[in-house]
């Protein structure tokens, strides 16, 4: 009854919480996983000079709780059934997804969200509820410009009312 593993391959049961993997086609870089991860195994690194965001997953830090899978809005990060993660080089444990940050349409500096997030937000707005064109005008704006635009709008609206 002794198992013949490692001389014969073995699969973990279908319920097993194994190594997490990010599907780069689905990831929008929102960072929901980085907020819930208890050991900070998934982190978000923004580089404002080159305008990139990196979502970095280190399975050597991961405790495999699957909170990321639970919170990911697009189902990009999933726990697989793989478990053979032993290695002699810690770099083998790291998975990086790099994407572009959105550029502010007003001042041209990089915002604190990605282009993919903008796509996602625009894609999930149900028709008829919000004025689609106006939202698209507001996206993407950096937080500075968004604030000043809001103030300008508010004062204009207030003026009209008076």
């Amino acid at each position: 009854m002794t198992k013949s593993y490692p001389f014969e391959p073995e699969e973990a049961p279908p319920e097993y919480r194994g190594l997490p993997r990010i599907n780069p086609l689905l990831c929008i870089g929102c960072g929901a996983c980085t907020n819930v991860c208890p050991p900070n195994a998934v982190i978000r690194i923004d580089d404002c000079s080159s305008g990139t965001r990196r979502i970095v997953l280190d399975v050597g830090r991961c405790i495999r709780c699957a909170r990321c899978e639970e919170s990911c809005p697009t189902g990009a990060i999933r726990l697989t059934r793989e478990f053979e993660a032993a290695t002699d080089d810690r770099n083998d444990h790291v998975e990086v997804v790099e994407m572009k940050l959105a550029k502010c349409r007003n001042c041209g500096s990089f915002t604190d969200y990605t282009e993919r997030q903008v796509h996602k937000v625009l894609s999930i707005i149900p028709p008829g509820i919000l004025d689609f064109e106006r939202i698209r005008d507001k996206l993407p704006l950096c937080s500075e410009c968004k604030r000043s635009l809001t103030i300008i709008n508010a004062s204009r609206v207030g003026g009209e009312w008076r």
């Binding site: 049961p13 319920e15 405790i63 495999r64 699957a66 726990l79």
Partner: peptide, 10 residues
């Protein structure tokens, strides 16, 4: 336990 929860211990 592994089949019920996804891990043997935690």
């Amino acid at each position: 336990a592994e089949r019920l929860t996804g891990n043997r211990k935690t």
